[in-house]
């Protein structure tokens, strides 16, 4: 499983969806969550870069897991997701700061697959953020934590990756369209 996580970690960094260790990836495996470790470089993932924590409750292994594990766990508890990606996509972060509760994509893929992308609040690694993200993802395939980054889910990791890239694409198109209109 770490190889699959590594594959998408590399793609995310190469695509500019996050940089260095800012972001995290997880996959649900039965009653466990295999998640990237805190501080790991997502384009240099090895077997030692991931840890499997309990799905239902925190344990000592959470100490070395990503600081956003609390959000991942809440998503898995509240939804049917089998994979989660959190990335610091720049245009998604910008749009989350320019809008209040959601953004409506202008591009056709965004309109087709997302309809709207919710913006949620809550500080990094908090229960509030975990609950708000999970609640949004009960309805949507992805959301943006205000000023922070995207959370996207999938039935497989590739799907969560596609959703992440689509959110960033929609945010980028919207940003430049709005900029042109306001000239």
């Amino acid at each position: 499983m770490w190889k699959e996580i590594g594959k998408f970690g590399k793609k995310l960094v190469e695509g500019g969806y996050l940089s260095s260790h800012f972001g995290n990836i997880s996959v649900r495996v039965g009653d466990g969550i295999t998640v990237t470790r805190s501080g790991c470089m997502l384009d240099e993932i090895t077997e030692a870069s991931v840890v499997t924590v309990d799905l239902h409750k925190p344990s000592s292994l959470d100490l070395i897991a990503s600081s956003e594990t609390i959000v991942h766990r809440e998503i898995y508890k509240k939804t049917s997701a089998l994979a989660v990606i959190h990335a610091h996509c720049p245009f998604a972060v910008i749009e989350s700061l320019l809008n209040d509760t959601s953004i409506e994509p202008y591009d056709s893929e965004g309109k087709f697959f997302f309809h709207e992308i919710p913006i949620v609040t809550g500080h990094i690694g908090t229960k509030e953020l975990a609950q708000n993200v999970a609640k949004a993802l009960e309805i949507h395939k992805g959301c943006i934590a205000k000023g922070h980054g995207t959370f996207a889910v999938g039935k497989i990791l590739e799907e969560a990756y596609v959703h992440t890239t689509m959110i960033e694409h929609s945010a980028k198109v919207k940003y430049f369209c709005d900029l042109s209109k306001n000239k």
Partner: peptide, 21 residues
């Protein structure tokens, strides 16, 4: 809606129950 590897069991147990639901 998404291509997945038909020749692998990897990840299928979780997927099947969701698609069945």
């Amino acid at each position: 809606p998404k291509l997945i590897d038909r020749l692998s069991f990897s990840g299928k147990s979780g997927l099947i129950q969701i698609f069945q639901n």
